[in-house]
Computed example of a mutant assay.
Amino acid sequence: MRLAAPPPDNEPAGHLNVFLGALRNNGQVCGTDWPIVMDNGCCVATVLAPAADSLDERYHGTYVRKCIAEARQVGITFACSPIGPACDCADACACANPSAYVLFTTFLTLESPVRCMDCFGPVPLYPFTARPNADFHDVISWQSDYQSCDHLQMNCTVLERAATRQMSVIDSALAAAGRACCARLSELAGKPFYYYLYRDKGRSAAREAQRRCPACDGPWHLPATLHGCFDLRCDNCRLLSNLAFNLRRPNDDSR
């Protein structure tokens, strides 16, 4: 992404950061790792986009358009050019009409937190936009909070138990925020949105086999693992989970 050279008394990097933040909240760029460098009098940032056409003007939301208009008033324009596909990201969903979606991320995930339930490929957020003056700040905030918790529980040093609880328990603040995101996205998409409850440790395989949906207490064991991640699914409550990782088979590398 390239920012044209502005008048000398402006701060192009500041405008570019604001613009990138608006794009992120609209689901048009992923993450916050966008180093900015000077190149031939222009500020240039390299960003990860969900798809090759994600930065097209047709996907711009209200706040993105506002940033563009404000930058133009001080002589700044933005230009975008693709570099190539990312080597360490999952392939984007190519399904014409997904049956459902799942809100899913990890501390390693760079892509959109929305996944297709059919192919499990990442799905950009911006196609779900249906309300004026709205973006996806709530979904992006949830993803950032979830990844922070996942970092803590993977590091196993500070706040491991508290972070794991946020990811695992249905009445945690993190789960409540995520399920609220699912409800809004489901309304926009007209499709079911599932929420994933992480399961780290269990006491025994027998107890894991007896686990029931934490929301309705109904049965939710799947006959086979779905997408290498999910062993449990409640269609009534739109919840997904896994059998405890400490009790999985040795060759199970889904995490």
Rank of each mutant, 00 (worst) to 15 (best):
L3D: 05
A4D: 15
A5G: 06
A5P: 04
P7G: 12
D9A: 02
N10L: 13
V18R: 15
A22F: 06
L23A: 09
R24D: 00
N25W: 02
N26S: 13
Q28P: 01
C30H: 12
C30Q: 13
T32L: 09
W34M: 02
I36M: 05
I36C: 02
V37F: 13
V37L: 09
N40M: 07
C42E: 14
C43R: 05
T46W: 06
V47K: 04
A49T: 14
A49M: 10
P50E: 04
A52I: 14
S54V: 08
L55P: 02
L55H: 03
E57R: 15
E57N: 13
Y63I: 07
Y63L: 10
R65A: 09
I68H: 09
A71C: 11
R72T: 08
V74P: 03
V74S: 06
F78K: 06
A79P: 13
A79K: 14
C80W: 06
S81F: 13
P82A: 12
C87R: 13
C87D: 15
A90G: 05
C93G: 04
C93H: 02
C95I: 14
N97F: 09
P98V: 00
S99C: 11
S99R: 15
S99P: 08
S99F: 11
Y101A: 00
Y101D: 00
T105K: 03
T106D: 03
F107G: 12
T109C: 08
S112L: 02
P113L: 01
P113Y: 00
C116N: 05
M117D: 01
C119N: 06
G121W: 03
P122E: 12
V123A: 10
P132A: 00
A134T: 07
S141D: 15
W142R: 00
W142N: 01
Q143K: 13
Y146G: 00
C149M: 03
D150K: 01
D150S: 04
D150L: 00
D150H: 03
L152M: 08
Q153T: 15
M154P: 01
C156T: 04
L159V: 14
E160V: 08
A162V: 03
A162K: 09
T164G: 07
R165F: 10
Q166N: 10
V169W: 08
V169L: 08
A176G: 13
A176C: 13
G178E: 01
G178K: 01
R179E: 05
A180P: 00
C181R: 07
A183F: 05
R184G: 08
R184T: 10
L188S: 09
A189F: 02
G190N: 03
K191R: 11
K191E: 04
P192N: 04
Y194T: 08
Y195K: 02
Y195D: 01
L197Q: 03
L197W: 00
Y198K: 04
D200Y: 14
K201E: 10
K201I: 05
S204N: 01
R207C: 07
E208K: 01
A209R: 14
Q210E: 11
Q210H: 07
R211W: 13
R211E: 14
R211C: 11
C213R: 00
C216F: 02
G218W: 12
H221F: 08
T225N: 06
L226Y: 10
L232I: 03
R233D: 03
R233H: 08
R233W: 04
L239G: 08
L240Y: 12
N242H: 05
L243R: 10
L243N: 12
F245C: 07
N246T: 05
N246P: 01
P250K: 11
D253H: 15
R255V: 10
R255Y: 12
